[in-house]
Write a protein that binds this DNA or RNA. Sequence first.
DNA 1: AAGCAAACCAACCGCTCATGG
DNA 2: GCCATGAGCGGTTGGTTTGCT
Length: 351
Amino acid sequence: MAGHRCCSKQKVKKGLWSPEEDEKLLKHITTHGHGSWSSIPKLAGLQRCGKSCRLRWINYLRPDLRRGSFTEEEEQIIIDVHRILGNRWAQIAKHLPGRTDNEVKNFWNSCIKKKLLSQGLDPTTHNLIPCHLRAPNSSNNNKMACNQSNIPVFTLNSQMTSNVPLENIKPPLLPNNYHSTLIQPIPTSTTSDYNYQNPINNNIVWNNNIANNNDCCQNSYDPTSTFPDVISSIDDHRRPISSTSGFGLLDDNYYSLWGTTNNYMVVEPTCGAKDSLDGNQQQQVQNGKVCEMEIEKMDELVMGIEENINMDSSFDSSSFDLEFVESTLMSGAICARDDLISSMDDFAWNF
DNA sequence: AAGCAAACCAACCGCTCATGG
DNA sequence: GCCATGAGCGGTTGGTTTGCT
């Protein structure tokens, strides 16, 4: 490379910035604003490329930058937003005031990525990694993780693990087209037989084998439909939750199960399931009502899911580690407190 | 203390997109 | 419509720091 267009005519310095250079740039921008970046080096008396000046300002000199290591809260936000937006670091960084895209990216690559991998989660899809594809030294040997390969899962984020007033819990933030990932094709005999659409990067949208052989899947796929606003209107029907950790799974009837560790769990049909509901149930969905089920039925449901997702024969149901699933494995849908979610309200709609 | 590898992070590179002539 | 330019973004590189043997 001969250099950037903006600085190809002049000799530019590369590498780390000296304190003197920082001072010059800071002083110039503070006084005059940055204006045209390409003219900055000359005006500020720097032997740097305009692009380099811009980067230095954005990533280091900006006065509103937040210093120090990422908090757990920030980490969770990154994970949650990344699940929806993918590697859109700039978009993700917008939800973390004072953090730069570069910083978020570095943090992701050096820390979060490894953490997810160690939990048996694919950092790209946030789905559980099939056993046979995992690194042999993976620290996670949880059987649930091994056997639920590629099942999209939901989680309540870390803020939910503390006692949060129910009224402050917001529904998962799902973009209009996000339902496509909620349409979980029924796994067939081999893992490779099912795929689903990632609405963000438009990777594999459909698995023909499943689409051709499963009317339910086929019928449930409606790109024009929107995710039913069910969760946001269940307050009247959900008991207060003293311990708000929870989990969700998609079974093959496209039900999203929202569980709590208290006395109740919520079962809500996703859009894909609507067609299979009877009139009364559809009306309930339409009205934003949900079914409440006693927690005793959770085992039955979980076992049903196990069967439906063709669990490995070695799976021992007694080893279903709900606590582990709740606290560690689930990634995905986002719930958050009002005071933490404000800046995220629109993130899912902006891609 | 020395050597090495891993982790971290600032900066660079190349690309896309928007804008204006 | 075409081209030049600038801004912004994501991927990658390479220097520095840290931890381990």
